[in-house]
Design a protein around this nucleic acid. Structure first.
Lengths: 345, 345
DNA sequence: ACACAGGATGTTATCGATGCCAATACTCGG
DNA sequence: CCGAGTATTGGCATCGATAACATCCTGTGT
């Protein structure tokens, strides 16, 4: 029925085959294909013709074995469907591809040290030249230190080891933008539903929120905590909605924000008339669910691209000093925030 | 400041180093590590001890060069943030990892034949043993045929080439569940906002919808078309909301459904009182946006796992006959659908 | 005690590309 | 027209693991 006939010869052509057809040595073929300067134009043409004729493609395994360069980077992510974690990967793959690198993914189900060690080890086994860690490192084990020391590593929104460079969105700024926006609308204070404290971005937002309030001379109310899921936003909303003087909430993610809004709704509170809500991420639905959500957009694609750029720089020059980099978030005002009503008015 | 000291020796230990420490030959080490039966327990222990002591890890490039097995599979996806495309990858990575395989991702920005060829070629270059194509193949070029013939390939929700096995969610069934649900609620007919017709799952849903209506003796109304994005759902909603007798809409994705609902809202139509809406996917927010969305849940994780299982079977036995497989979707009734009001009542 | 089956281990060649060094072909100045 | 000097090119060893084949042990039956 179906025949998996590989090549006529039984196996794909090797460089030697190309050399034979082109009438040169393998060495010349190698040089011609890797753009070495001292190959005569005419020779290069002959080689390319042979390559074309045979449908030759370089064997990456052989190249890698010999040269140590796999042209592959690894990506460690937590296996969730939370929007933000997914959005960066797209930017990463894009930038990597642009630079001629492939991306091998290793997802972990938990944030256990051992799970992350496992993911790193798997990537190392597959010969990646560098790794992008898009998970928060709760606890940096010795083994992780070892692995990140032996392979160039970039952490996104994470804590750093002494061998790890960090690329991050300025989450404190995100929190500041959101909190200030609400204060400027005249709200007396701003409540906060944070993400899990193991996540550095969650705790940065939390700190940013707290500091902004303090700068403005307000006492931060107690912080609530979610797990990024809409359900956890909802659960927190059932609590928050019962506290009389809550008029403004900054939520650490859009998905939680919509969960919150639904809970408030069920408790008879209107958004934004009674309570204003700001999220973070600017997911695709932020504009289209009701009410459309005021949120802080994160430049996910740029973050990914920046991480790749830094990683490649570090792969190219292992001694390059780590330079923390960050990108700026942006407030997008929509319909979930409104001026505070004059109290008692 | 930071020293990228690799190993003390200057380079990672090789199998020969292990053999030296264990006092055996490399071959025995190889056998011990790949679970070959005829290795004495005592010898295996010595080898494992040496491995442990040296922190040895197999060099995948070398193994691959010699044996042709990279223990890596490739995944081609379209670079979008549309929920469904993302959700399967998580199932794929999980199942692959379970089986000891790594996943290398190649995203394409467009569905051009050449873009897909490029993605496949990149994966082939990196020595993947098989490929999962999670993009619709609009036009199967000769080159794609070649590539899929030389590498085991599974297509998810896509059209098949003569060398490609297909794993799919039964999209016709999804459409049937949604449409029938609406008809059972007493709606005279059901409108449909479809996804891009290049996507096989979109057109399967469209056909399923049309057939169900015809089976029930209704004439299908004209079909509207979106591009999976919330914005396109919104745009279609602005049209649909102006047609007087529309009371039920089946939308090909949740994100478009929420766009539709927002447009209807703005036109003064209430969901579900005036118009019932059913989506597809069951995204995390489906339950938490207002109104919570009646939708057809797709078993994304299983789909991914199934694709991997089939692919590995095919890798193991290249002559195994392709067996199309499909998994069943499930209707989840929430608050966006309601019984039709007695017309004129 | 001897030969033999079969398990356990060692040897050698090999996968395909590339770094290093040697060898050849070509250029130009004198 | 020749030699120095450079532009091209080729030969060989090599990366690390494994397949195939060879060898060396055990234990066992008669």
């Amino acid at each position: 029925m179906k025949e998996r006939t590989r090549e006529a010869a039984g196996r794909p052509p090797a460089m030697a085959d190309v050399a034979r057809v082109a009438g040169t040595s393998v060495q010349t073929v190698s040089r011609a294909l890797s753009g070495h300067p001292s190959v005569r134009e005419k020779t290069r043409a002959k080689v390319l013709a042979a390559v074309d004729q045979l449908g030759y493609r370089k064997n990456n395994a052989a190249r890698m074995l010999r040269s140590g360069h796999s042209r592959t980077i690894g990506l460690v992510t937590l296996q969730t469907n939370f929007y933000s974690r997914i959005a960066v990967t797209s930017g990463i793959e894009d930038a990597a591809h642009e630079a001629g690198y492939a991306v091998t993914a290793a997802t972990t189900k938990s944030l256990d040290t051992s799970a992350i060690e496992g993911a790193l080890a798997r990537l190392a086994d597959h010969g990646v030249e560098g790794v992008i860690l898009a998970v928060p490192l709760i606890h940096v084990s010795e083994r992780i230190e070892d692995l990140t020391r032996s392979i160039p590593t970039i952490t996104i929104d994470g804590s750093r080891t002494d061998a790890t460079e960090v690329v991050a969105v300025d989450q404190a700024m995100a929190a500041r933008l959101a909190t200030r926006h609400l204060l400027e609308l005249g709200h007396g204070t701003v409540w906060h539903i944070a993400g899990p404290s193991e996540w550095l971005d969650a705790s940065s937002r939390s700190t940013g929120w707290r500091l902004t309030l303090e700068e403005e001379g307000r006492t931060p109310p107690p912080e609530l905590k979610g797990d990024w899921s809409p359900a956890s936003g909802y659960a927190n909303g059932l609590v928050l909605g019962r506290i009389p003087d809550v008029t403004a909430v900054f939520v650490a993610s859009d998905e939680m924000a919509f969960g919150l809004i639904r809970a408030l709704h069920e408790l008879g509170k209107r958004v934004p008339e009674d309570i204003s809500v700001v999220g973070v991420d600017d997911i695709a639905l932020a504009e289209y669910c009701s009410p459309s959500l005021t949120t802080v957009a994160q430049p996910f694609a740029e973050t990914g691209a920046l991480a790749v750029a830094h990683l490649l720089r570090q792969i190219a020059d292992a001694d390059a000093a780590p330079e923390p980099a960050s990108v700026e978030p942006r407030l997008i005002v929509r319909a979930s925030t409104a001026p505070a009503r004059a109290s008692g008015g």
